[in-house]
């Protein structure tokens, strides 16, 4: 069994969203690794969907995620302070009953993922776009969170 390291900084996962088993895996992951998290973690935490790619520049955070085959009414993004929540339900329409499956690898089901960005965002101006099965959320940093150049006086 592959046990992934599942620590949670800077993007914290909501603990209540975890099942007992996920929590166990999480604890075990911490135990086995025995160290604090690094900033740029490459490994996704166990038992979460969807996977995220988070970047930022001077003005915005950008969250990208692969969620193919969704309908917009079943995909939700909400933002409070620095907490972003992505949830939804992926349904795979059932085929007619005469079909015989040779392979069924694609998954359907509910998902919810909540995580914290490193700083506050302006939640009134968040934009989300869903295209080609990719979710892209642009979150403007709040004014106080933007880096400010300080003049140095001699």
């Amino acid at each position: 069994m592959l046990i992934r390291r599942v620590d949670s900084w800077p993007l914290e996962h909501e603990l209540s969203g975890f099942t007992e088993f996920d929590r166990f895996r999480r604890d075990l992951g911490l135990l086995l690794n025995g160290r604090q998290s690094q900033f740029r973690r490459e490994e996704p935490p166990a038992g979460v969907f969807p996977l995220l790619h988070v970047t930022h520049d001077h003005d915005n955070f950008y969250v990208r995620s692969e969620v193919p085959g969704m309908t917009l009414d079943k995909l939700d993004v909400s933002v409070t302070g620095r907490t972003v929540s992505i949830s939804g339900e992926r349904t795979i329409p059932s085929e007619n009953e005469h079909v015989r499956y040779h392979r069924q690898e694609r998954e359907a089901g509910k998902f919810r993922r909540q995580f914290n960005l490193p700083s506050d965002v302006d939640s009134d101006h968040v934009q989300a776009k869903y295209r080609h099965g990719m979710l892209m959320v642009v979150l403007p940093k709040s004014e106080s969170a933007k880096p400010r150049k300080i003049m140095i006086n001699s």
Partner: peptide
């Protein structure tokens, strides 16, 4: 991903 963006977290 535009080059000016800096990665915070990359899971895929």
């Amino acid at each position: 991903i535009p080059e000016k963006e800096e990665v915070v977290l990359k899971e895929f």
